[in-house]
Design a protein around this nucleic acid. Structure first.
Length: 991
DNA sequence: GCAAGGTC
């Protein structure tokens, strides 16, 4: 029996090479949907079967991450919301062909073997491949091949010991990805939006970013610059003895090195000058070798290119990649600095014998057999960088880079340079001096490697015990010098030392801080911090977090390691790190003025920016959410001002969730009280709000210690209602928002509305409208097309009080539900039988009217949405709705579970939320009288927040329900305890 | 328009 196996490697090169090895050079090649990722086919033994194998590849990560909907817009949500915003995982457009190839091939095969690189990222890429393949073929069996290098032996061993994917490694990468995105985006948006406003003259178009790699890199440059600035030179003194031998003058240096006290040095000088004869105390000769370089890895390549060729790291890497794609050199991204024992270097050296400059050297190496040193690093995937083919016709920098790689390779394969070092010690009046000379005996690798310097230094022959007159003894004065400013190669070395970025990304991070104007490069290649970079680091230092230091990142790295080892759990790490960084962020925003001040020493007077500007542009202290949205329960709600400068409280889920609360015009400022939580509201935390009123507009009984200021919960406070602080709200049921690792958004709005007015009463006179809710959509008798502002024949009618939309265009998406609120035309995005279908849904949570758009493709499934008489709505959203599965809680027949809705007199049901989620098990009252008849009231059993959920037309105040239960003690409606009522409840709000 | 990590 033949087993059908799909193998997937991390990149095409690896797939090709592994196929070659597994097939004994017998694989055939065909095209995949991605032109960069071929499919290699062959047969071999696998899992004790004859396997027919298709081997293909991805190109690194298949999936990428981003925020969704409202969180994508820079000014649509406050940056702090990004710490809890949902994240969408999706396959970007240019990788779709790869994904489609995987899906297609997965369907044809029984087994999937993952051949991604054996590192953390590789494990995660493996998991991405697995998820895609399983979604196309859920019966495919998944294995992981582990190999340390792409050699016949390693590959064979791997195939005999197929394992399972290490979920821990994959999880660590998910963790890194999520944190990098949240932290980077939040800080970047905040900084950019704020500083563009504060320093419009200099930074109006400047992107000011924060990244956990770029910022510490900037920190290194600033640190060194400061060391140089703060350096105070010190004068030192030393002695020098000059001796003539065979007409050659030799400088001997003092064994005491240097002293910082002139008087003391002068005493030694006088002593020597009193008895100036030098006696040779020791002459020693020993052989010395200068080691040939180690095989070249990426980091060394970048450093050498920068130092010796004066080509910056980023540029050097892009040239190397070009040479690689031309087949001239090996893969340039490698952490390996030792050639695998199995690798045959002879043909590679052979190639270079043709060259006029280094051909002789290549021949010499072949005569001696190439023998490179073995370094101590291996990424177990790629060999060190080496030339593949001889390339005589390159020009410019390409030629320089290629030549360097060839010379370095030949130098590696050559022998160490040999020399003889002679050291001579002399004694002058008990003070010791020494000198050394060098004679190079065999240049060896130096012949081909001009980048290293090792020169002869001639000194004459001295004999131990001989006495010589000193030519002179002198006091030399010098000054200590500051450290040198960093050059690119030093910066890369520091990044490597502190684990900032990876070998593949060092050059990119350096490029980023250059392009963001954080640093500049001088003519001599040294890095100077720019005004922006300097100011940012100073500002952050002022705030007190070492964001420009590598520590925080190092802590994350340690956590990631712990995840890999199974000592920590991914979700815990994300939770704690998000919380940590969020606190840092909040403190940073609260102290943002310090950043302004630091920058103001470079960019002049800042434009004042305070908390009064409570918009999304990064300022002030309005960045705390008040609570989770009362409508969608998914997103946070924030205070903000409208264009007309009226205060509102809105859900950041807009436009997916349009819940919004309007305040009366007397409110001049609204803010979340960071320290005060409401102890009665569920779904904590619900913060109390601080509303500032215009003088004279606030009722006397609301005034507390501070005149004209109200502090209290907006969702369960009777006083608010009595005071006439009308919390008008409009909302829509939000579509499901995809969370991490979901590849779809189920529903997205076709357009977005701005809310212009309060909804009004339902139009009870419209028979079609009022009947529709009960009947649902009748497929046998499809209604006429829905028109905007229909003439009464449509299911939606224009309510006379709704303001005309400003455009006046023929906007079919704009309709008014029979409850008076706006209804949206939405499209199902989730893959399934209804993909692409459009439907209308009312924006108010308490209505949730649903209707398929009859203009949708009639061949689609036109069954009406699932109806359940116990459900609140005729529309059942896919997931995420706490009201989705509501079933009456009827365990007994006594009246204990019943209340009478005092508004309409109907008996209200006490229901229990069955669906798993935040509200699981919670009880609520629901009046069964249809909305069209003016009721359909909703209220959680354990709280009072009627206005949030009641139909807008209901009057304020008064209790809609009177309990008919006669059993048990009467409980306080605030704290649910017996013995008092809400008027004298000890837990009540003081207002 | 944000990050960093893979890779072409």
């Amino acid at each position: 029996m033949t087993l059908k196996v799909l193998c997937v490697a991390e990149k095409n090169d690896a797939a090709r090479e592994i196929s070659r090895l597994l097939s004994n050079n017998q694989s055939s090649r065909r095209e995949g949907l991605s032109k960069f990722n071929k499919i290699y086919e062959f047969s071999c033994e696998m899992l004790n079967n004859n396997a027919s194998v298709s081997m293909t590849s991805v190109s690194g990560h298949l999936m990428t991450y981003d925020f969704t909907g409202p969180f994508k817009g820079w000014e649509k949500c406050p940056p702090v919301a990004l710490f809890s915003a949902p994240i969408l995982s999706f396959c970007p457009e240019n990788y779709q062909p790869i994904k489609k190839t995987l899906e297609r091939e997965a369907k044809k095969n029984e087994v999937l073997v993952l051949w991604t690189d054996c590192d953390r990222e590789g494990e995660n890429i493996g998991a991405e491949i697995r998820d895609v393949c399983l979604s196309a073929n859920n019966r495919i069996r998944v294995y992981r091949a582990r190999f340390s290098e792409i050699t016949f032996r390693s590959i064979k061993t791997a195939i005999q010991r197929l394992e399972s994917l290490d979920e821990k490694l994959a999880a660590a990468v998910y963790c890194r990805q999520e944190l990098d995105l949240r932290i980077g985006a939040a800080f970047t948006r905040f900084l950019t939006l704020r500083l563009q406003k504060v320093f419009p003259a200099d930074l109006a178009d400047q992107l000011v970013s924060y990244g956990p790699c770029q910022f510490p890199t900037l920190g290194f440059v600033v640190d060194r610059y400061k060391q140089v600035q703060q350096f105070v030179p010190e004068t030192f003194y030393k002695l020098k003895a000059v001796v003539m031998k065979n007409d050659i003058s030799v400088d001997f240096s003092w064994s005491r090195g240097r002293l910082f006290n002139r008087a003391v040095t002068e005493i030694f000088l006088e002593m020597c000058q009193e008895h100036p004869t030098a006696v040779v105390s020791r002459v020693a000769s020993k052989s010395k070798s200068k080691w040939r370089p180690l095989p070249l890895d990426t980091v060394e390549f970048e450093k050498h290119a920068s130092r010796k060729l004066h080509i910056n790291a980023k540029q050097a890497m892009s040239i190397a990649e070009k040479l690689y794609t031309q087949g001239l050199i090996s893969y340039p991204r490698t952490e390996t600095n030792l050639f695998p024992a199995s690798m045959n270097l002879v043909p590679l050296v052979q190639e270079q014998t043709q060259d006029g400059q280094w051909g002789d050297m290549a021949r010499q190496i072949l005569a001696d057999t190439p023998n490179p040193r073995r370094g101590n690093k291996s990424d177990q995937a790629h060999p060190p960088i080496h030339p593949i083919k001889y390339a005589p016709n390159l020009q410019g920098d390409e030629k320089k880079v290629y030549e360097f790689i060839v010379r370095h390779f030949l130098a590696c394969c050559s022998k160490d340079a040999q020399g003889m070092e002679t050291s001579v010690d002399i004694c002058v009046s008990q003070e010791e001096f020494s000198a050394a000379g060098l004679v190079i005996t065999q240049r060896n690798y130096l012949e081909v490697y001009p980048y290293d310097k090792w020169s002869d230094k001639n000194i004459p022959n001295f004999t131990q015990g001989e006495s010589l007159p000193t030519e002179r003894i002198e006091l030399v004065e010098g000054e200590t010098t500051p450290p040198l400013l960093l050059k690119e190669a030093d910066l890369i070395a520091l990044m490597e030392k502190h684990g900032i970025g990876t070998d593949a990304t060092h050059a990119e991070h350096i490029e980023t801080i250059k392009s963001r104007r954080y640093v500049g490069v001088q003519q001599d290649g040294t890095f100077l911090p720019g005004m922006l970079g300097m100011g940012l680091v100073e500002g952050y230092d002022e705030i007190g977090y070492n964001l420009s230091k590598p520590y925080l990142r190092a802590e994350l790295e340690a956590d990631l390691k712990a995840i890999c080892l199974g000592q920590k759990n991914k979700d815990d790490v994300i939770k704690s790190m998000v919380e940590k960084y969020k606190q840092v962020f909040i403190e940073t925003t609260a102290n943002a003025i310090k950043i302004d001040q630091s920058l103001s020493s470079y960019f002049g007077t800042p434009e004042p920016m305070g908390p009064e500007q409570g918009d999304m542009r990064g300022g002030g202290d309005d960045l705390l959410p008040l609570a989770k949205c009362r409508s969608c329960l998914q997103f946070d709600m924030y205070f903000k001002t409208t264009r007309e400068e009226k205060w509102i409280l809105s859900c950041v889920g807009y436009p997916q969730c349009k819940y919004i609360v309007f305040f009366p015009s007397g409110v001049t400022h609204a803010k979340t009280e960071s320290e005060q939580l409401c102890n009665r509201c569920p779904h904590p935390p619900v913060h109390k709000a601080r509303l500032t009123f215009e003088r004279g507009t606030i009722p006397y009984f609301l005034q507390g210690d501070i005149p004209n200021v109200f502090i209290g919960c907006l969702f369960c406070n009777e006083d608010i209602k009595r005071a006439g602080i009308e919390l008008r709200n409009m909302s829509s049921h939000p579509p499901t928002v995809a969370h991490s690792h979901n590849s779809y958004q189920s529903v997205v709005p076709q357009n977005s509305f701005t809310i212009q007015d309060t909804p009004h009463n339902s139009n009870n006179n419209n028979p079609i409208a009022s009947g529709r809710r009960d009947l649902g959509f009748d497929p046998t008798n499809p209604p006429p097309p829905v028109k905007r502002y229909s003439d009464g024949t449509s299911h939606y009618t224009k309510h006379p009080r709704v303001t005309e939309p400003p455009s006046g265009g023929d906007d079919d998406n704009f309709v008014v539900c029979n409850c008076g609120a706006r209804a949206n035309l939405l499209t199902v995005k989730k893959e399934g039988p209804n993909t692409g279908r459009k439907f209308y849904t009312c924006m108010t949570n308490s209505c949730k009217y649903f209707l398929w758009d009859p203009r949708s493709d009639p061949s689609m499934d036109t069954r009406p949405p699932r109806q359940d008489p116990t459900q609140m709505s005729s529309y059942v959203p896919p997931t995420g709705d706490p009201f989705m599965s509501l079933y009456p809680n009827r365990p007994d027949s006594n009246s204990h579970n019943q209340s009478v809705c005092c508004r309409c007199g109907e008996q209200a049901k006490l229901l229990t939320v069955q669906k798993q989620g935040n509200n699981h098990g919670k009880q609520f009252y629901s009046c069964p009288k249809p909305r069209e008849q003016g009721c359909n009231f909703f209220q959680w059993a354990d709280e009072e927040r009627r206005d949030s959920f009641s139909p807008p037309q209901r009057g304020r105040g008064g209790n809609s329900f009177s309990k008919v239960s006669r059993g048990g003690p009467r409980l306080c409606s605030i704290c649910r305890q017996a013995g008092h009522n809400k008027k004298n409840c000890p837990n009540s709000n003081p207002f």
